[in-house]
Amino acid sequence: MDIFLQLTLSGLSQGAIFALIALSLTVVYRATTIVNFGHGDFVMAGAFFVYVLVIYVELPYVFAAISAVLIMLGMGLGVSRGFIDPIKAGPHIGFAMMSISLGYVLRGGARFLWGREVFPMPRVFDIEPFFIGNLVVTGDVLFISAIVAVFLLIFFFIFYRTTTGVIIQAVYQSERGATLIGVNVRAFHQSMWGVGLAMGALAGILIAPISLLHPDLGATFLIRGFAAMTLGGFGSLGGAVVGGLLLGVAEQLFGFYINSSLQDITAYLIIVAVLVIRPAGLFGRTVTVRV
């Protein structure tokens, strides 16, 4: 029982990061109907910016983190303006091609600058682990869970309880309707790209101190984001969060109780199983996803 709880706890904190990634993918998807296949690499880029700012510029972690989020926010606006807007008249598959390519460019850039080395990030906060009964709560678990929880509270509060949130919901429901109430839909798309990449960067920032950074990190995050979305229901914001948490826990449990080699393919197994058994996921509306 103790080991089960311990695994669940670390699964939840891993899952919190997957939840962020899935949520950030969903934000862009719901606003623009674009599935950002390069998202993992943008997450990786966020993590690398933190690394560079901490190691080379010697910024304190907190400032490095804020800067990385802002850089990725700007990158989101730029990507939308520079690479998505111009191809809007083309076929929808062009968006998928574009996002994959941009991701690979980032990945290639990271490889070029850093080679294929693996980078340890210095510890950020030395929070002493503490015990709840026999359960060990490490500083990392506490730090990640707290940050993600606070972020999610703010996110969902804005979405459901503020005028800005109601406007976002409105644009999600009808773009034509949104233009009829004077919303600049093009600017909206751009800002959702910005928000999506900034949220992805937040995930990267949380990952950076607890894992080894390497340029190919993105692919593993992308697939976990997709698995979380699929499990929660493609396009559902709440579903992305729940899906991410469940995926995190599932990885830990499968890895321990069945076979440790299973941990890495849990995400794929979940995607396959959910699509076969319940394609709309846990909270999914029946939507057709175009890529």
Partner: peptide, 12 residues
């Protein structure tokens, strides 16, 4: 404009 399709926000 009030459009021909009305274009309301159905879930709100």
């Amino acid at each position: 404009q009030v459009s021909q399709a009305r274009d309301l926000f159905p879930g709100l």
